[in-house]
Simulated assay, not measured.
Amino acid sequence: MNLDEHALASLTRVTRLVTLMQPLNYFVLYDDATSTSQGPARYSSLDEHLEPALVGLLFALHLPRHRQDPIDTSLEELSKARGLEQRPNIYICSVREFEEGALPVDNRTLAICPPEHLEDVKERCSTMQFLLPPLSFTELTTDVLRTVWDQIASLTVPTENLRTANQQFVPFDLSAIEVPNGFLRYQLTDQSVETTDRTAVERIEDSLHLRALISSLGALESAGATEESAARDLPKEYRKRAQSLRLPVAMAAPGVSPSEIGAVASRLGCSR
């Protein structure tokens, strides 16, 4: 293969990856007849109208973020994709805004709504050519999650290399760690998510383990390792990758920074 052919092959891989990683669009609806805004917003204040929709927001975070998620891809490609934007577009808006407002055009995937509005929202989704009919907040379970995941996969990715959905719908108090880990486990195992008997530190360690494992297996895959040589070399490669992993940590403490004390005191109308 000459230089031009190498360049073309590389460009093709990049184009394919970028195309597959275009985010899918999910709409989480809440019931607020008093809303005056025109069209959906990416963010909304947390008020009494929005509270019932939180389960729909959590459910949407479990669904495929883009069209590459359901594909049984190479570990090297999976590892490199971590450097790209991987979040889906999740729009939060009232039912009225959804029915009357202008919606984003591309990749309209699924709407999740209050059960009393399901039939009206279903008609709107059909008119706007959503990929799937809407779901109500009362039917969001692990079984439904896996069914919807498989439906999205089969309708968005014309390939035979699709994995069967094994995502676990986890509760709010575990979602910050378990949802990201779920996407990693999805590519590696049949996935079993414990819900109560593991500490936050153990869950973070699990996340680091999965990332080191993917990185190690991806390196062996790229090097053309056979099944036998990979089994032999994996422990050494894993130790090397695990030692080089870096975990960003943010720390916060109550109070006012010394450099801001004067400014804060001035705004409050008191002395330092």
Rank of each mutant, 00 (worst) to 15 (best):
A176C: 07
A53M: 10
E227L: 14
E51C: 06
L213F: 14
G39V: 06
Y43E: 15
I152N: 02
E85D: 14
E205T: 01
S216L: 00
D206W: 11
S222T: 11
V201I: 14
D173Q: 15
A176V: 10
T226Q: 07
A53E: 01
L135F: 04
H49K: 09
V179Q: 05
F59L: 05
H209R: 15
R42F: 06
N89K: 12
S271V: 09
N181R: 11
Q22S: 07
N181L: 12
A242D: 03
L118P: 00
T73M: 09
L8S: 12
G182I: 11
E194F: 04
A33R: 10
G182K: 09
E116S: 13
R13E: 15
R267T: 08
L184M: 09
E178C: 08
L135D: 05
A250P: 00
L103S: 04
Q243L: 09
F98H: 04
T34S: 13
Q22L: 10
N166V: 09
L208C: 14
V28M: 03
P235R: 04
S126D: 13
E178G: 06
T164I: 10
V28H: 01
N107T: 04
E99Q: 11
E228D: 13
P254D: 14
Q151M: 13
T226G: 15
E48C: 00
L50Q: 05
N25C: 12
E77Y: 00
I152L: 07
H6P: 00
V256G: 02
A165M: 06
E160A: 10
V105G: 07
A231S: 11
Y30G: 05
A225F: 10
L131F: 02
T189A: 12
L118N: 02
P114N: 13
A41G: 12
D197S: 14
C93S: 10
R185P: 07
A223G: 11
T15Y: 09
V28D: 00
D120I: 01
P180A: 03
S244M: 06
R13N: 08
V256C: 09
F172Q: 14
L3P: 02
V14C: 13
L140A: 07
S244V: 11
F172N: 07
L54M: 13
D32E: 10
G39H: 06
C125K: 02
S10Y: 11
A223K: 15
F130K: 00
D143P: 00
R146V: 11
